[in-house]
């Protein structure tokens, strides 16, 4: 009941809002939707199976560069290219997952951090193919450029992602994710193949990052090593943590709030990621359930005075 009351007007808002927005705010909304995809899919591994991966932005970079380079070098249309990019990202996801998930914990974080940096360095240095920090110009999705079309493309794909994530979290697989997060040994002793469960989550999440990155690249039409950078990664992390890790709504909320906020802060220089990082640390320490947790608490207090 509650859910329909909130989500119906929200859907209307998201469909009609763009007609009232300036080109600039339309752009902010499109970027926000990109971060919704990124933060929500990262939440699947970090929030639901407890694997803090730093490779998520790197997988977005894989998606963007694979699709972009295919388009530039052999003329493969972006519509097809992003699926190839997604596929490559998921393959790398399986491989990296296989490599470091057995190690778990801090080793997973370190390995993914290393992977991420190596990828960024390769992209920066192989400028014959990627044009390095100059950026690679790639075609967009639509022959006639229109922010409105991109907005709806991003909205639809985000909705599909969220639908998939929602179904996944509320399925048997989602229960297994949470069991692994709660107590890996107890889950294994209950017959759950914990390694398989974690690799599966990692792969799905990598694939989603790959697709999000591909969309993002073909929207910007200029891709740079900033896409797979750690700055980008920390922004996604901050969105999920501040919004509320391990909850479905948290990363969505975090993505919109932080992206809009960073538009205001950006005029003071590129310190917003640092600032968000610090806030995320504070949130992780003092309100681990993030904004969603705080709102829920308030709600309960109001309901039963």
């Amino acid at each position: 009941m509650m859910k329909t009351w909130i989500s119906l007007p929200l859907i209307f808002l998201l469909i009609f809002l763009p007609f009232f927005l300036s080109q600039y705010w339309l752009h902010v909304m499109i970027i926000s939707l990109f971060y919704v995809m990124m933060a929500s899919s990262w939440n699947l591994i970090a929030g639901y199976t407890g694997q803090i991966s730093f490779a998520h932005a790197a997988f977005a970079g894989v998606g963007a560069y694979v699709s972009g380079m295919l388009a530039v070098n052999i003329g493969i249309p972006p519509w097809l290219g992003i699926f190839v990019g997604t596929f490559v990202a998921s393959l790398l996801g399986v491989g990296l997952g296989y490599l470091c998930i057995r190690m778990g914990g801090i080793y997973l974080s370190l390995t993914t951090l290393g992977f991420s940096e190596i990828l960024r360095i390769i992209i920066t240095n192989e400028d014959r193919w990627t044009r390095g920090t100059m950026g690679l110009q790639i075609p967009g999705f639509f022959t006639e450029y229109s922010k409105m079309s991109y907005y709806f493309l991003f909205l639809i794909v985000s909705a599909v992602f969220l639908f998939i994530l929602y179904r996944l979290i509320h399925s048997e697989m989602g229960l297994s994710f949470r069991a692994v997060l709660n107590d890996e040994l107890a889950a294994a002793s209950s017959g759950i193949d914990t390694i398989r469960v974690r690799i599966l989550a990692f792969t799905i999440s990598s694939a989603m990052a790959g697709m999000a990155g591909g969309l993002y690249g073909h929207y910007l039409m200029l891709i740079t090593p900033d896409i797979p950078s750690l700055g980008q990664m920390f922004l996604v992390l901050a969105m999920a943590v501040i919004g509320g890790m391990g909850s479905f709504i948290g990363p969505i909320l975090g993505a919109f709030v932080l992206e809009v906020l960073s538009e205001y802060i950006r005029i003071y220089g590129e310190y917003h990621v640092l600032l968000f990082g610090l806030v995320a640390l504070g949130v992780a320490r003092f309100a681990p359930e993030g904004m969603v947790g705080v709102i829920k608490k308030r709600w309960k207090v109001k309901e039963s005075p």
């Binding site: 229960l175 949470r178 107590d183 759950i192």
Partner: peptide, 12 residues
């Protein structure tokens, strides 16, 4: 599984 309900514990 501390943060799961009793029913979910058995479901696993």
């Amino acid at each position: 599984f501390l943060k799961m309900t009793c029913l979910e514990n058995i479901l696993i």
